[in-house]
Design a protein around this nucleic acid. Structure first.
Length: 372
RNA sequence: GCCUCAAUAGCUCAGCUGGUUAGAGCACUUGACUGUUAAUCAAGGGGUCCUAGGUUCAAAUCCCAGUUGAGGCG
């Protein structure tokens, strides 16, 4: 079956959405943060640890799994969820972000995108059809359209051409999509241009996808521009389909996204900064490598209910991080993922009680106050 | 007792045919990270070049004496 979004409540002041998304492998509440498991693993964590973090859905990447181990092996294993022993809902990204991170402008053609493999430098060619075919075989619950994710900034002329090409690619992917058990989402682009966001959203919605996402954010633009990108997109999306903001994961960005009508977020930030020794806390981001945590025998965050905070101290985690022990990255990853998911839980509660703006103000003053 | 070799950043070492402000890796102290090319990247602090003389316009570098260490010979 296709995913089904149920809108259960709008925050009275902001219109922010509380709802649920039904999938073939479970129903979860939104807003929700989706941890990133690019290569069929949320780096350093087991599926059980993700369940403990209350992850509603996780993400894997078409591009990376195409190269290794190959989509046919994963199909043989019974799909990516079975392959990695993850029992909950899963979304696959299309490889569109790799157009941004790996390809050069001249590599992007109407037919598809020429890549140089980041593994061995060999020449690759990814098309909208191929991306969808790979995702059909990966058998995720939700497949993403193959889009161009342009860098920031590009001029209006380039962005218009890019948006039109992404629309044609979306249509090609839609026509290729054959896995009836899998949903397919369209992606809104248009950069910081309000007219192109509107145009991209309206044209994408006409194709009647199972859900919609906002792409082209977190590619180097400033915060204010990113928020404009969102608020220039969500008004044109249908209220009865889920909305997913791609690549956004700073706590304040998630809150601002929810206020603007977003339901799902994904981001590598919690897991990446964890491997680099950092943790989100109510009082801002902290770097456990800092000397000031040497004798700090308190948890990362007093109010956190994660496995790490219930059992370990900052001093111990600092020891693990400074001695390059893998457990440090694991404990921090568990905490950071749980932190963002708990944030979305609290946002859901705030929406249900129509107190989202009040919640935002409280969170913000703590988070952007003095670090400790 | 004699001979040889060594001594430069916290550690391991480059530099030694004299010539800008003595370097590197690691460690240390910080910072960055937003649909993962990332357990990564960047910056910063840190020196009696063993000590004392000498040669020279100029010495980590050459000469002399000493100190400490390693090895060898008695």
């Amino acid at each position: 079956m296709k995913v089904k979004y149920n809108l259960l409540h709008n925050d009275k002041e902001t219109g922010a959405r509380y709802g649920t998304l039904e999938t073939n492998h479970g129903t979860f509440e939104t807003p929700m943060f989706m941890p990133v498991g690019t290569r069929a693993t949320v780096k350093m964590l087991t599926p059980e640890e993700l369940y403990d973090c209350k992850a509603g859905i996780i993400l894997a990447n078409t591009y990376h799994l195409w190269l290794k181990p190959g989509e046919d092996l994963i199909k043989q294993a019974g799909g990516v969820r079975k392959f990695m022993n993850y029992k909950g809902p899963m979304l696959t990204d299309s490889g569109g972000f790799q157009v941004f991170s790996l390809a050069k402008p001249k590599d992007i053609t109407e037919e598809g995108v020429h890549f140089k493999s980041h593994i061995d430098g060999s020449k690759l060619f990814l098309t909208p059809e191929l991306s969808i075919q790979i995702q059909n075989k990966l058998d995720s619950d939700i497949a993403m359209s193959f889009d161009e994710c342009p860098p920031f900034p590009v001029d209006h002329d380039y962005m218009k051409k890019s948006v039109d090409r992404t629309l044609r690619w979306a249509k090609r992917g839609y026509d290729t999509h054959s896995n009836q058990e899998q949903s397919l989402f369209g992606i809104v682009q248009g950069g910081e241009f309000a007219d192109l966001r509107k145009y991209s959203a309206e044209e994408t919605v006409k194709m009647n996808f199972d859900g919609y996402s906002i792409g082209g954010t977190s590619v180097g633009e400033d915060k204010e521009t990113m928020l404009k990108m969102i608020e220039n997109s969500t008004p044109y999306l249908p209220t009865d389909k889920v909305r997913y903001l791609m690549g956004v994961g700073e706590p304040m960005d998630i809150i601002e996204g929810v206020i603007r009508g977003v339901d799902i977020f994904d981001c590598v930030l919690p897991t990446r900064i964890a491997r680099h020794g950092n943790a989100f806390t109510r009082h801002g981001k902290i770097n456990l490598k800092n000397l000031k945590f040497r004798e700090d025998f308190t948890p990362l965050d007093e109010e956190c209910d994660c496995y790490t905070c219930k059992n370990y101290t900052r001093a111990y985690i600092r020891h693990l991080v400074t001695t390059d022990e893998a457990l440090g990255g694991r404990l921090l990853s568990i905490h950071n993922i749980r932190f963002l998911i708990k944030l979305t839980e609290e946002l859901r509660e705030a929406i249900k009680t129509d107190k989202l703006l009040e919640y935002k103000d409280k969170f913000k003053s703590k988070y952007e106050g003095s670090n400790s």
